[in-house]
């Protein structure tokens, strides 16, 4: 909570050139007290609070991970090779996201759109994998209400899946907006913003994959 890390501008006597009310309207140079743009700071704060959201869900899962009583348990269900493949695809999407951000910074709109689409596609594959996985689990006897383990597993991974799906919709809409020139504000920054979100969702998945699938119960 300490603000010690935030860089302070030197004691300004005169209003610096380009000093504005800090509103996000297009085309005006910004000046902010921290030097970070408003949207970027807001995204970081949002992701900070998301950490606690997933923290709560992961804690719930860790508490209940073995409480399946006489019902089906995780060790009977996991298909580690498959989940590793989906995790790999999601990780690769972070790479393509980086490509998109770098293309956007170079103002290479063509490639930005390409990489964003590819990122969305890879994300879509991941979600498809999750849908497939949930279907097989359900067929194998793990309903949402079967046990504490099942409820907390589906809730945690479901929340993550929804985050990925929202990310995909944002990516695709971004492509459409770029194509139609409808984007409000700085293109590169908007791409970077969604990139931050996307990387966050990926990192959370790495955590979930490790804690839920890899560490034996």
């Amino acid at each position: 909570m300490s603000d010690a890390t935030i860089a302070e501008p030197s004691d300004v006597e005169e209003i610096p050139a380009g000093y504005d009310d800090g509103q996000d309207h297009a085309g005006l140079p910004h000046h902010t007290s921290t030097g970070l743009s408003n949207t970027k700071l807001a995204m970081w704060l949002f992701l900070g609070s998301e950490c606690l959201l997933f923290g709560g869900l992961i804690s719930t899962y860790m508490l209940y991970r073995n409480r399946q009583a006489d019902q089906i348990g995780p060790d009977q269900l996991w298909d580690i090779p498959f989940t590793s493949a989906t995790s790999f695809v999601l990780l690769m999407s972070s790479l393509t996201m980086v490509m998109a951000v770098s293309a956007a910074k170079r103002k290479d709109e063509q490639r930005t759109k390409l990489w964003l689409t590819v990122t969305a596609l890879l994300g879509g594959l991941f979600v498809a994998g999750q849908v497939y996985e949930f279907t097989t689990f359900y067929r194998e006897g793990l309903g949402y209400t079967t046990s504490l383990f099942s409820s907390s597993f589906y809730t945690l991974t479901g929340f993550h899946g929804v985050h990925v799906a929202v990310g995909i919709i944002m990516l695709l809409s971004l492509v459409a907006m770029l194509a139609k020139g409808k984007l409000v504000g700085d293109n590169a920054e908007t791409v970077e913003m969604i990139g931050l979100y996307w990387h966050f969702v990926d990192i959370v998945w790495i955590l979930i994959f490790t804690l839920v699938y890899l560490i034996p119960a």
Partner: peptide
């Protein structure tokens, strides 16, 4: 964001 970013010139934390 408002408090951190939008302070008037000279308004240190």
């Amino acid at each position: 964001v408002t408090a951190l970013n939008m302070r008037a010139p000279g308004m240190k934390l």
